[in-house]
Design a protein around this nucleic acid. Structure first.
Length: 475
RNA sequence: GUCCCCAUAGUCUAGCGGUUAGGACACCACUCUUUCAAGGUGGAAGCACGGGUUCGACUCCCGUUGGGGACACCA
């Protein structure tokens, strides 16, 4: 039975890299009828918060990455770690270290400044009984360090193959911090073991931790799980995606107007592909196509342009109901719709969304590109005014308006007939009128087909806007 | 500085000894069109380098270079 987990630390929002790792774990579990477990790694008491835990859970849910077990909290399992630490201590596989972080930091700084390789000396391993006694009397805080044995640690990574590490390059890392909370490497091993995790699927940045963890499994007498290290997600300059320069929180993408379907689809293709050229894929398709051996080794740049393209594809393919559900919250957020209108003009709103969807990339674009449908308070594009508005055209527009006003049925067909007929009579091309009309009524140079826009807007608004414009616009 | 990982167009990728190196995003041109977008057609753009192995290397091996990651009582 496959059992995998995602183990975020609640010290920040759900990072897109973590989301991708979660997705691969989830897909792998679904594909193999296994279980996906959520574990919150909140042993850093100072930096972990309840808010971030909630945020992470919210983001995971938004993406649809629901878990079968958990969330487990490491902060509630402290006695378990302590128990295993005591065992290792008793078997002399670990020892107490009385050095303070400050002392170690200072030593490290000195060594690094000499451009030498830093490795914490196992000073406290060789403490005499007397020294130990003194430290204990002083009540000095003590951490538990693992006694790294000699030898070479090797493991088979499902993606990278064999990875070897000479244990002499490993320092005696901390198992239990002096505040009696476990270190990451220790807690992970105990938990993965205790939760019967079969495959540890995580980012490449954990390759360096793996030998340490394997050593722990061995000293505890447990069989290590399989390790799968995914290529890292990179920023545009190929460095690690960082909080400082990049949008890395899943929440940010949701708020920018990305659809979870597009986001998940895009993430799935960063480091993996189905191999048959398919790109736009539903979760069901992803599940059935997913396999670990199609994951590649090199890091992938998170290309927002492609994400945006994909998002546009998903939006274009949406039907009215789906559009309504997804886009309305954004229009509401941007104060273009209120509850009452949403209820009363549902069908009309859907028509507007259908009209706009082809040129929208983000859900938030509905507000940007279609504000004139929802408010009279829209901006006129300066360049467009210069290009399309002059005295002659404005006068003709007023005449067209007269005719439109007389239409019994304000349908796109009738509108088009009217405009084209007028153009023919005046000896001008239809485009000569269409552009200024669009400018005056929508404020934009471009947009959906003009006649449909006018029909959707309704006769009253169209006529009023032309009137109003002719009064305020000074040539 | 030490250790580890990686290397096909600007980006995401297909390729797993013999291919005109395929697709997608982005870009450019043309087309369609009332505009924009979409669509259609076409285009530019790639196997980092050097040695091997082999009849034959993008593909296998070694090295170089380049990029990335890890080196906390953070996770």
């Amino acid at each position: 039975m496959v059992r995998v987990r995602i183990a975020p630390s609640p010290t920040g929002y759900l990072h897109v890299g973590t989301a991708r790792t979660a997705l691969y774990n989830w897909l792998f579990a679904k594909k193999n009828g296994g279980k996906f477990i959520l574990r919150i790694e909140d042993t850093d008491i100072a930096r972990s918060t309840k808010e971030m835990t909630d945020e992470i859970i919210k983001s995971l849910k938004w993406l649809g990455l629901t878990w079968d077990e958990g969330p487990y909290f490491q902060s509630k399992r402290l006695s378990i770690y302590q128990k295993y630490a005591d065992i290792l201590l008793k078997e002399n596989k670990a020892y107490y270290c009385y050095c303070t972080s400050e002392e170690i930091a200072e030593r490290k700084k000195k060594v690094m400044s000499e451009k030498k390789a830093w490795k914490n000396a196992r000073r406290c391993l060789y403490l005499s009984e007397k020294e130990k006694e003194n430290f204990e009397k002083e009540n000095r805080p003590k951490a538990v360090r693992f006694l790294v044995p000699e030898g070479v640690t090797e493991f088979i990574d499902e993606i990278h193959g064999s990875i070897k590490k000479d244990n002499k390059d490993l320092e005696d890392f901390v198992l239990m911090k002096s505040d009696n909370t476990p270190s990451y490497n220790f807690a992970v091993v105990i938990d993965d073991m205790d939760m019967h995790i079969t495959h540890v699927i995580r980012g490449d940045d954990h390759i360096a931790n793996t030998p340490k963890q394997i050593l722990l499994y061995k000293s505890l007498g447990f069989q290590p799980p399989k390790f799968v290290h995914l290529p890292l997600l990179l920023a545009e300059d190929k460095s690690k995606l960082s909080k400082r320069h990049d949008a890395v929180a899943v929440t940010d993408y949701r708020e920018q107007g990305y659809l979870k379907e597009a986001f998940v689809n895009f993430l799935s293709l960063l480091g993996w592909s189905p191999g048959d050229g398919r790109e736009i894929m539903s979760v069901e398709e992803l599940i059935s196509a997913f396999s670990l051996n199609r994951i590649i080794k090199r890091g992938a740049v998170f290309d927002t342009k492609k994400l945006m393209w994909m998002n546009g594809e998903y939006i274009t393919k949406m039907d009215g109901e789906a559009l309504f559900k997804n886009a309305v919250p954004f229009l509401k957020r941007d104060k273009l719709l209120d509850e009452k209108t949403i209820e009363e003009k549902r069908e009309w709103i859907i028509n507007v969304l259908l009209l706009l969807k082809g040129r929208v990339k983000l859900l938030s674009d509905f507000s940007k590109l279609g504000d004139y449908f929802f408010t009279d308070d829209f901006k006129y594009d300066e360049e467009g005014l210069k290009k399309y508005i002059d005295k002659d055209r404005l006068n003709k527009l007023l005449l067209v308006k007269e005719r439109l006003d007389r239409l019994e049925l304000f349908s796109k067909e009738e509108i088009e007939k009217t405009v084209r007929k007028f153009a023919a009579e005046s000896g001008v091309k239809a485009a000569f009128l269409i552009h200024p009309l669009r400018m005056v009524v929508t404020g934009n140079q471009a947009g959906p087909g003009l006649f449909e826009v006018l029909e959707t807007l309704g006769k009253e608004k169209v006529v009023n806007r032309i009137d109003k414009f002719s009064k305020i616009y000074i040539i």
